[in-house]
């Protein structure tokens, strides 16, 4: 009897295949994983308009109307503009270095209004929006360098907020006219 008991198999679970199982799982997750970072242009839509409340009056000179029509032509304040000139024109409009009567009084008051029609090609719209965001990025970087001597990207949160206050991003997406 005693001898028989001793000959029993050991109670341990054989762990030598664990590595194989783990490898198998590892390969599965390796294959299925897609490490992709989502990138895009962040925007905040305007809240829905209340028909009973009058919109606050905006001085025409503080408003930059950008229209992208069905042929993908960009019109800034009734002037046809090449996509490459959008950024410089916008910076001029926001900063208004010469104090022109036609351009924004103050960067704080400058509003960019983007208008499209239903047939506007999406790609042109994004290209144009990219230029607008780029103009603000340039201005903020400039302000960051002037005030803190560092690039906008390396500022901390409070400094960033301070710079954002100098050049607030006021972009309004207007609804297309009903046809």
């Amino acid at each position: 009897m005693l001898l028989k008991k001793r000959q029993r198999e050991s109670a341990e679970i054989n762990g030598s295949s664990m590595a194989d199982i783990a490898f198998l799982l590892l390969i599965f997750f390796l294959v299925t994983t897609t490490i992709n970072v989502d990138t895009g242009i962040g925007m905040v839509l305007p809240p829905p308009l209340d028909p009973e409340v009058e919109p606050p009056p905006v001085h025409q000179r503080n408003l930059m109307n950008i229209l992208v029509n069905e042929q993908g032509i960009i019109v800034m304040d009734d002037v046809r503009t090449n996509i490459n000139d959008v950024q410089t024109k916008l910076i001029d409009f926001i900063k208004n270095p010469e104090g022109s009567e036609e351009l924004a009084e103050d960067p704080l008051k400058a509003i960019v209004s983007i208008k499209t029609v239903r047939q506007t090609p999406y790609r042109i719209y994004i290209d144009m929006l990219d230029e607008v965001i780029g103009a603000y990025a340039l201005l903020r970087n400039e302000a960051a360098l002037a005030n803190y001597g560092r690039e906008y990207g390396s500022l901390n949160k409070e400094q960033r907020d301070a710079v954002n206050k100098i050049y607030p991003k006021k972009i309004s997406i207007a609804e297309p006219d009903p046809e």
Binding site: D38, T39, G40, I41, G42, V44, L45, P46, R118
Partner: peptide, 20 residues
């Protein structure tokens, strides 16, 4: 996209990101 954006405004989901 205009229609969708109008719906988003009504829903109150105002933070959007044009994926590029």
């Amino acid at each position: 996209l205009t229609d969708v954006q109008e719906e988003l405004k009504q829903a109150g989901t105002l933070r959007v990101n044009y994926s590029t």
